[in-house]
Structures are given as C-alpha cells and as structure tokens.
Nucleic acid binder design. Sequence first.
DNA 1: ACGCTGACTCCAC
DNA 2: GGTGGAGCCAGCG
Length: 113
Amino acid sequence: MKNEDSFFDKVYQVVRQIPYGRVTTYGAIAKAIGAARSARMVGYAMNASHNDKNVPAHRVVNRKGLLSGKHHFGGTNLMQQLLQSEGVVVIDNQVQDFESLLWIPPVLNDFNT
DNA sequence: ACGCTGACTCCAC
DNA sequence: GGTGGAGCCAGCG
C-alpha cells in the first residue's frame, strides 16, 4: 500500500530523491506528484518538512533558481551555504547555471506500479 | 466551522 | 516586453 497518504509525504519523498549537488523546482516536484498547479503546496510542505525531516529543502528553489525559502532556513545564508557546500554556485540567493543543475524528479508512482 | 495565508506558477492585459 | 491578477490545495487562526 502506499505510504504517502498525505500530499506532503509525496513531496517529501520526491525531494529526498534529489541527488547531491543538484537542485529542483517546486513546479517540477508538483508535477511529479501529480499537482502541477499546486506548486505552492510543495513549498508549504517543505516548511513542515524542513522542521526535522530528512528533506533537503535547500535543494529546492523556485522557477528562477532563486532561494525563495532561504529566509525560512533560519534567517541566514544557511540555505545558500548548504548548496555551495554541495558544489552548487549560488550568488545573491540565485543558483548559477541553474538550468544545468536543475534535476527533474520522476513521476511518483502510486505505490509500485 | 469559516476564512486566510502561503518557500509558486502561469496566463492575461 | 513588463506588470498584475488569478489559480491551486492544505494547514492553521
């Protein structure tokens, strides 16, 4: 059975699949979970996840590659530093070469095909 | 129980 | 080409 009964859990699973040194967008995740129009919920879910889950929310940026949620990461450059630690060049809260680092997550299967 | 907000995105003017 | 508004869904006051 599927474990991701909650919309948020779906997001968590997808975000956790983001490879090292890679970034993705809310829209990409939203589409992966079947909610392309609910990108806001993706970010919202992250807020609940970053709290303590093992979800690399710092790898999730907005459509422009901007660290929109950095402000919620503790109020410091934590998010930017984390990305740079992974080899991602971030300048002024914006991911450089964002398109190249952009990683599109696969569509989340309902539970196993 | 009702309504608002929210780490976004897209469409229209 | 730039700016503004509407849409989506779920948690929270």
